[in-house]
Design a protein around this nucleic acid. Structure first.
Lengths: 217, 217
DNA sequence: CGGCAGTTACTGACAAGTCAGTAAGTTAGA
DNA sequence: TCTAACTTACTGACTTGTCAGTAACTGCCG
């Protein structure tokens, strides 16, 4: 390759860029879409409802995102970026701190019912055939399981067998999600308390035999 | 008017009963609907698709059930009855047998992916506003929690505090549901093993301090 | 036991609505 | 001036639900 020439002179003519306010506009639409898909589901939430929240028509939304499915994909990416930004400054928790972080998240979630509902509805929907969010949800689970499994092994000082750590990791994610569903349907379920109880229980069992004391209390 | 005649002669005329084959016909439709709502969700599954499976038109389905929502309700009731029939002969498990039953269910579920998917999709959908299955799902959770909580107290010989038993009961249901979602999305999740591991872990923690040995192994 | 009244179990057509997506025209900002 | 950012108007595909009509079945009357 010839690297001597300056990188490809801009064949750009004039104002080919989006306007300045457009970035924020798109973000507005993404937040509206997250809200709609969250409360009604992806299939059942309409572009018109999303558009109305930002004061435009559904065709305006399609101008920005091309299709409903593309909008969903960007919503999911947007949420990922937000999650990362929330953790900015803080180092990514690992080891025992990860579990403390999970319990803290459950406590926070009680104050963000809408977000929890969105996650729950979308996750449930994603197991249907050819759902556009299926890949995203599956990937999310895979990453999360990996992180939690690694944290379990780390806390156990390497003495926890891989398959036990894997089962415990799945179980921790499962119990968090499953408790959220019950809590959404019935406020009498104590989401933070049950989450903490279950995580401690699963962690204790996974570490049993390593001779280490329980690290959460 | 001549009121001398005996009070309102039976207005019953003739054949008022459904035909013989109708019961089985309705059951066929219910099974088809369970399949469709299970794989596509209630909102996204159409009457036409249900009808096609039994070789009639969507109007025929509506003839039998009146509305889509009424069909869903009957599907749920039908499934309940089937569940009960499955347990027939066997006494309803309680105490430690309930937990063995739950683990056995997880093992069986690996062979009934469709049913698990139906349960998962419908449960996720039900947390949306005004969903027609919401009451059914909520009620199901309430009953299940009560049974599991009672079993925990029983196994613990009455030494387990009510709130601990309640949290453990929620957690056990939650982990079963949550693991099913992960398993549906990713076969590499070992549903039976992780379920058994988590139930044992949660049960152990709940019984801790009662001085009883772990009852599952 | 034959026939007919009344009902069931549908079909096919249609109503009324929602939906995503397209195309063409308008406005306003860089 | 050029074009991004819309709107309006529309299409076609689907939805559930209604309705009138029809064939077939059921049970009673004579």
């Amino acid at each position: 390759m010839d690297d001597a020439v300056p990188p490809a002179a801009p064949p750009q003519r004039r104002a080919r860029q989006p306007r300045q306010a457009t970035t924020e506009r798109r973000a507005e639409i993404l937040r509206a879409a997250a809200h709609t898909f969250g409360s009604k589901g992806y299939k059942n939430g309409s572009l018109a409802e999303v558009a109305e929240q930002v004061g435009i028509t559904h065709a305006g939304v399609l101008h920005h995102f091309g299709s409903k499915e593309a909008l969903l994909v960007e919503v999911l990416e947007y949420r990922d970026k937000e999650d990362v930004r929330d953790l900015e400054g803080q180092h990514i928790p690992d080891g025992i701190q990860l579990f403390q972080h999970l319990v803290r998240t459950a406590r926070m979630n009680v104050e963000r019912r809408g977000i929890v509902q969105g996650y729950t509805v979308l996750t449930g929907e994603s197991v249907t055939e050819d759902h556009p969010a299926r890949g995203w949800v599956t990937n999310r689970f895979t990453i999360l399981r990996g992180e939690i499994q690694a944290a379990i092994v780390e806390v156990g000082g390497g003495d926890v067998p891989a398959d036990v750590a894997a089962q415990a990791a799945s179980a921790i994610i499962g119990v968090m999600d499953g408790l959220q569903v019950q809590w959404l349907l019935d406020d009498s379920v104590d989401l933070p308390a049950a989450t903490q109880f279950a995580i401690e229980a699963i962690l204790t069992s996974a570490l049993l035999g390593t001779g280490r004391p329980h690290p959460l209390r």
